[in-house]
Amino acid sequence: MSDEKIETTTPVELSAKPDATDGKRVLGVVPGKPSSGERKVITSDDTVMVWPHLLVRHAVVAMATALVVMMISVFFDAPLRDVANPQVTPNPEKAPWYFAALQELLALFPPLVAGVLIPGAIILGLVALPYIDNSKFIRPRHRKVAVTTFTVFIVIWVALTIIGFMFRGPNWGWVWPWQEWHGEL
C-alpha cells in the first residue's frame, strides 16, 4: 500500500502524517491518539529480560522466606491452650493481634463508632485512595497531603495495635509488657 493511497482512504484530517516508513503498512489511524497510546514509549535500554534477572531474584527471596519460616518453626512451637470452655472466660479476652487496634478503639469509643464506622471508613478510604489522590505526581515529595495523611494513619494504627496487643491486661487495664505479658499469637 503506497502513501498516496493511505491519504485517500483516511477521511479524517490528520494533524501529522502517520509515521510510517518504507516497508511498513499503516493498518488504521485512530484520530486524537498518538500512535503509541497514552503510555510513555519505553526504549529497550530501560527494560531487562525477566529470565534471568527477575526470576533469579525472586528465587532467592523465595528461599530466604522459606528459610525464615523454617527457622521460626523449628525453634518456636505454635501455642495451644486448654480446650475451649464457654464457661471460663479468660481475662483479658483478646482478639487476634491484627484486630488489636480495633479492640483498643472499642475501649475508647462507642461500639457503633469503633466497630462499624471506623473500620468501614478505613476500607472505603483505602479503596477510594487511587481516585482521590489522582494527581499526575508520583514522587512522595510532590504529594505531601496524601503521604502525610497515610503516614499519620499508619502510625496511629500501629501504635493502637501494639497497645492492644502488649499493653492491655485484665479488664483491659494498662500493663507494662515487661512486668505482665498478655500478648497471644
Binding site: 495451644l80 480446650v83 475451649a84 479468660p90 457503633l112 466497630g115
Partner: peptide
C-alpha cells in the same frame, strides 16, 4: 483467612479470640 483459621484448634485462645472478634459484627446497626 487468618481469622477463620484462628478458631480451628478449638482451644481457649481460639474460642475467645473469635468470640471477641465476631462481637464486632454485632455492632452493625
Amino acid at each position: 483467612l487468618s481469622f477463620t483459621g484462628y478458631l480451628l484448634p478449638w482451644d481457649q485462645l481460639a474460642f475467645w479470640a473469635v468470640t471477641v472478634g465476631s462481637e464486632m459484627a454485632g455492632y452493625v446497626p
